[in-house]
Design a protein around this nucleic acid. Structure first.
Lengths: 235, 235
DNA sequence: TCCGTTTCGTTAACGTTGTTCACTTGCGCG
DNA sequence: CGCGCAAGTGAACAACGTTAACGAAACGGA
């Protein structure tokens, strides 16, 4: 007899299934109608049930959106990891992962807004949970930088003196993730992440739309800048 | 007799005053309680009146928020222009304006989220009005780049070949603002704006919080990078 | 100065939102 | 098999944005 999932009873399994169907319905509503279209009643009726039933699965609307955020993080992370591990060279892994990040953001603007936009108070709270998400998502990139640093230590050398306070903060961060990386590499990662996320954010939120319909080439230029800084030649 | 403001009747003046009192009240609520705290009823009662009265001044809650966005843009622009024009050298004007942008964003996180965050459907609509806002705000920076380019034409030379499509888009943009600048300078402005806005966005929205409590030095590093690119030595 | 019009603000109400409560149904575990 | 608990329902509540009908005050022209 298939004794897999013994730890989860049948009830628990259908419950978990319903939960993810609910977040999926919420996502669909988010994509088609924006944030305000994702109402508890709409979500419920998408599964053919009434609003109060939702509260058997989530404590509140916010908790449901929080679960959606988690699922989206997982989806995005899985996609990036797949792209990263599919590319051949180390340079290709970095470039393709970065491009995949932008591509996902543009293909899923609404979801990106939920994950990375202005924090809605109560939802996606940038408190403990949010920081943990950031840490896990950062780890995905961090591995690339560890590889890059291992290949060429010169890459992590800073052009300018590093302010004492900045170094201290980065050291604390490194410690918080178990010291799997040295401070210099972590700093390099943070600076590059800031650039890449920033570029994607600017474009997705439409703050280049006053000038450009499609900022792909501009992103590509920024990316090549970063790559150069990382000792990666043009792919 | 003081015949100033003849074009605006007394009624029109107190009406305009009430309108800005309403947006100010909305802002106060936004700052203290987040987006969802800014309800029509709360705004009204802050001025000692009831909710429906609001509709004598704005077509909807969204229209009120839109007016608030405009006021905030004006405030931010005024502050940046003041800083820009106070600094002595051209280099100082660029650096201080950039720093002032970050400072304003951090000091007014909620407002920044409204202006530059994920576009809320219906509010701040990144349509025609949004693009116009972007254009006006961009003009503020653009003047700096015109000065920079006038001082040293080498600065606007691109390190990589500029893709045809990108050049075409930038040319269109230049045309849309009356051709007050050449394509190369506009491109340089857009790339730098993307970096600076991106860095501020990353920090304000808390997407470095998993690692850094204060990203000031990281921003400063990015800023000095950009400055170097612009032929500006360290200030 | 007085009158008609316009504006401002109110109260009442409607539909919708998130959420709670009391209740029924029926599946799944012991 | 039968009991228990989880799942789902309908009614209800407060608060939301918004509209309608109405009264009062203020303005502009004769």
């Amino acid at each position: 007899m298939p004794d897999v999932n013994r730890v989860l009873s049948r009830r628990d399994r259908v419950r978990a299934a319903t939960q993810s169907e609910l977040t999926a319905a919420a996502r669909e509503l988010l994509v088609t109608g924006g944030t305000e279209a994702v109402t508890v009643r709409s979500i419920a009726s998408a599964l053919g049930m009434t609003a109060p039933a939702i509260y058997r699965y989530f404590d509140s609307r916010e908790a449901l959106l929080d679960a959606l955020i988690d699922a989206l993080y997982d989806e995005l992370a899985a996609e990036l990891i797949a792209v990263r591990d599919a590319a051949g060279s180390l340079a290709g892994r970095f470039l393709e992962t970065s491009r995949a990040f932008r591509r996902w953001a543009l293909a899923h603007r609404a979801e990106f807004g939920l994950l990375f936009g202005a924090p809605i108070p109560g939802v996606g709270e940038l408190g403990a949970a949010g920081e943990d998400r950031g840490r896990r998502f950062g780890a995905l990139w961090l591995e690339l930088f560890i590889e890059l640093a291992a290949r060429d230590r010169d890459v992590v050398r800073w052009r300018r003196p590093i302010p004492e306070r900045l170094r201290a903060q980065v050291t604390d961060y490194v410690e918080s993730i178990g010291g799997v990386v040295d401070t210099d590499t972590a700093l390099l990662f943070l600076a590059c992440w800031e650039r890449l996320y920033g570029a994607v954010c600017t474009e997705v939120f439409g703050h280049l739309a006053f000038a450009l319909d499609d900022a792909e080439e501009l992103f590509e230029d920024q990316l090549l800048d970063v790559a150069e800084r990382l000792g990666i030649g043009p792919s």
